[in-house]
């Protein structure tokens, strides 16, 4: 017998594909859908009061995005494709109905929300515990993991195709400091800057730093 969730997915599934840099949703936009990420990596970021975009995390296949829509009217952050992305789009009203029908599903959603809260709380702690160098390494490492770059890839190229001042915003630091830290990592042979790409030359060093 099909579960309520399987029924919903078989009748309501709407698959969407995104190219890199396309937005899945933007902060402040009316929250009407929840998304299940099937393929690719999504970059999650949030604007601060000064209009700078701050990196929150990278989402990986299997994760659910936009859960805030279950109770809030607007998305609290932006979600942008970093690589080619495939998502399942589900209407929030349908998910709300399902929450009341299916205890297992309810617990799954609540657990996912708890996980996302913990992730953000940990990130908050690392912001006052870790140096910029460590935070940059953490960002690169999470990116490598979220892109599912094979373990044997010793020197992954990261698709950081944004200008470096944008990278500084994402990390909550000044462009000068980020530039200086990247230069240090280049000089130590840990990364290489190739125009708009960063190549990790020593993944172990990045792991140790993060």
């Amino acid at each position: 017998m099909k579960t309520a969730l399987e029924n919903l997915l078989s009748t309501q599934r709407e698959e969407i594909t995104l190219a890199p840099r396309d937005f899945l949703y933007q902060e402040g936009q009316a929250a009407r859908y929840i998304y299940c990420l099937e393929e690719g990596t999504v970059f999650i970021f949030k604007k601060n009061t000064r209009g700078q975009n701050l990196w929150l995390n990278f989402s990986q296949p299997g994760q659910i995005l936009g859960l805030i829509a279950l109770k809030k009217t607007n998305y609290g952050h932006s979600a942008q494709a970093l690589s080619p992305v495939k998502v399942l789009r589900l209407e929030v009203a349908k998910i709300r109905d399902l929450l009341h029908q299916d205890m297992q599903f309810r617990l799954q959603i609540m657990t996912e929300l708890s996980r996302q809260i913990s992730l953000n709380e940990d990130k908050g702690i690392s912001l006052h515990n870790k140096t910029l160098r460590q935070r940059i390494a953490r960002m690169f490492l999470e990116l490598i993991r979220s892109l599912e770059l094979p373990e044997y890839t010793e020197n992954p190229t990261l698709p950081i195709c944004c200008p470096f001042h944008e990278l500084a915003d994402f990390l909550g630091a000044s462009p000068q400091k980020v530039d200086k830290t990247l230069e240090d990592l280049v000089n130590e042979g840990i990364i290489r800057k190739d125009e708009d790409r960063i190549r990790v030359l020593n993944r172990r060093a990045i792991e140790a730093l993060a």
Binding site: N48, I68, K71, G76, L113, N120, K123
Partner: peptide, 19 residues
Amino acid sequence: MELLTSDLRLAEEKITDLA
């Protein structure tokens, strides 16, 4: 659900403040 979504929003806002 109300509590979880509010906590999620707060945690995200705290990151932007801290950073």
